[in-house]
Write a protein that binds this DNA or RNA. Structure first.
Lengths: 352, 352
DNA sequence: CAGCGGTATGACAACGTTGTCTAAAGACCC
DNA sequence: GGGTCTTTAGACAACGTTGTCATACCGCTG
């Protein structure tokens, strides 16, 4: 049969309550005891019974809330979350939601009303939805948001920052370094803050290189293939043409690639194209896409880890969480990530 | 607060145990009492607490077991499963597993040992793993398998069939109808039965059109981009070249497209390429891929529905499940699916 | 009428965990 | 050195349900 907390206690020679304390990282358990208990847990391959825990009041499901058409992104997030959650004795409930449909709150209400949810992981656009955030705060439900931007110490909740601004700066800087001067930017929907951040990073790099921004080269649109293809078609009709395109994600870039091909514009010789995200298909286009790699699995792992710490802190009445980070996991990832430029075959120096 | 069984009992003026009996349709409760209890349940809008019930024995989670690098496929399956599970009062637990790693059984054992799992949804390659299936049978755990093939009435467990054979036949038939005679087949790993089925469908269609099969044109390999690119490079070096390539999935097809481009072979004018699956990126290549659409969401929904029926049947001691199908869901999907040919831009009549 | 078997109902334990309260041991202050 | 505070650990109840056993009642039979 499955090992219970009492089996662990017996093996470690302590009361079962002490084991409970160790598992939940409650303060005030001697170090030696902690080690004995962890050893016993490992030996018995013990995992807490979620139902029992739920029953007693402590929910142990973490809900992953998302609405993202990019399967690759979602899967990487899921797997990152799963690994961390399981390691910490929580289970993951995936919860795709239709962001546009209006009854987001009602759907969420339904999910939360079961009382099984210990905390939420919010990805854009939900992580930037003030109404939703306010509702969660009011319910005092722990959550972690994954957002675009750089760290803001004033945030009351844990938050994972993806520095789209810097990554976009790096990309644009790289293109300018190759001699490009007419660099177009194909944005996504501006409801997504990442689209805005990427544009700002792009503008900052242009300024750094003394390139004047040209409003005609900054084309708003959507985060998908068709929008990228469409906008590129129009860009290629301009005189003079841009020599490089920075697409706000890989799908837009794939669309750009498609239009370049249709219009018999050679990539990269006549037109360099850069994407953003490093989805698998960025390696499956011709030529292979230069892009910025987003470490989604790590981002997710970090999110889960911060969320769980926050859940525990809110249970134990606050400060506790800061204490164990120095000793237990020095390798605990920080809450800031910066996508890295990956140079492949869709970029080269600007034509003369 | 949420109503409990005791609140119901108090309102109905009976002991809470009697309420439990009524809810679980146990025999030996007087009719008049039953009515009083049901009325109270309705009035309080009472719903049993899943955790408490789990704790005491009855599981209500369904696990989705998979190992598939194709994010798109996984996501569509997940969403199809989720919709059906939630509708029927079950929750979905996703469980990615590394098929090759050998400790599959150990990992699964761990999952099952929690006792929370009411049933499993198995996708290839797990759905074709005899050891795993035997283990589940022995534990008497309900499961549903999603496999490649056509219906086999001898199966003791529910099973969803995807008719890769027929779909591959349709594709090859379509190519032959366009006048192609030298049609290459780029397979995947033969551990996946779908790879084998697709090859057989291909061969059958060739035979139907009186085309001799050419072993040099049937190239085994892997279900990925690089393998497709590599094999296509070799195919294009042949004299005479094939005029069409049937790739066993879209990724292989994307690789083929890539190699054709590198070798300056025009697609589709000089070479037609067909994929299989209709992943999103089949619309994001240039030219857009002709492929076979696999209705993954529907397949998943059907799997969940069959699994839940099977779970209920095994709880109530067998026959029960047949009784409610006629009235409740006449629209219950069948267990056979056949991917449909989608013609896009990567195919055209054979060159003269 | 005593005894028996069957039926309808209730009391209580149990599931595995966490929260609360309390006890023991040591550190610290005057 | 005695009292008080802090740290550490255990005993016990509680969560909402189902399983097991006991009880009360009924109608029979001998």
């Amino acid at each position: 049969m499955k090992a219970t907390i009492k089996d662990v206690a017996k093996l470690a020679g302590v009361s079962f309550k002490t084991v409970s304390r160790v598992i939940n990282r409650e303060p005030s358990v001697g170090e030696e005891l902690q080690e004995r208990v962890w050893a016993a847990i490992k030996e018995l391959n013990y995992q807490p019974n979620i139902s029992a825990r739920q029953l007693r009041g402590a929910a142990s499901f973490i809900a992953f809330i998302y609405d993202n058409p990019n399967s690759h992104y979602v899967i990487e997030m899921q797997h990152g979350l799963l690994a961390e959650c399981r390691a910490q004795g929580y289970e993951l409930l995936i919860h795709p939601l239709a962001a546009g449909s209006g009854d987001t709150m009602a759907d969420l209400e339904q999910l939360l009303s079961t009382g099984h949810i210990a905390g939420l992981v919010l990805t854009p656009p939900f992580s930037e939805n003030p109404e939703l955030i306010a509702a969660l705060r009011e319910r005092k439900l722990p959550f972690v948001r994954i957002v675009s931007g750089s760290s803001d110490p004033a945030e009351p909740e844990p938050c994972i920052y993806v520095d789209d601004y810097q990554a976009a700066f790096d990309i644009t800087d790289y293109l300018a370094g190759l001699g490009h001067r007419r660099i177009a930017f194909l944005g996504g929907e501006d409801i997504h803050r990442s689209s805005v951040e990427r544009r700002h990073g792009y503008l900052a790099a242009l300024a750094e290189h003394g390139i004047d921004e040209d409003p005609a080269l900054i084309v708003p649109g959507e985060f998908n293939f068709d929008s990228g293809a469409d906008r590129t078609r129009r860009l290629l009709a301009m005189q003079p043409r841009p020599t490089a395109i920075f697409a706000a994600n890989d799908e837009i870039a794939a669309g750009a690639l498609f239009s370049a091909r249709i219009n018999q514009v050679a990539v990269p010789q006549e037109l360099s194209i850069v994407g953003f995200e490093d989805s698998p298909f960025s390696r499956q286009t011709w030529p292979k896409l230069t892009t910025a790699h987003q470490p989604n699995g790590d981002i997710a792992g970090s999110a889960a880890s911060h969320l769980i710490a926050s859940i525990r802190a809110s249970r134990n009445g606050s400060a506790a969480s800061h204490q164990d980070s120095p000793d237990s996991d020095a390798s605990l990832p920080d809450n800031g990530f910066r996508p890295q430029l990956v140079v492949r075959d869709s970029t080269c120096p600007a034509p003369q």
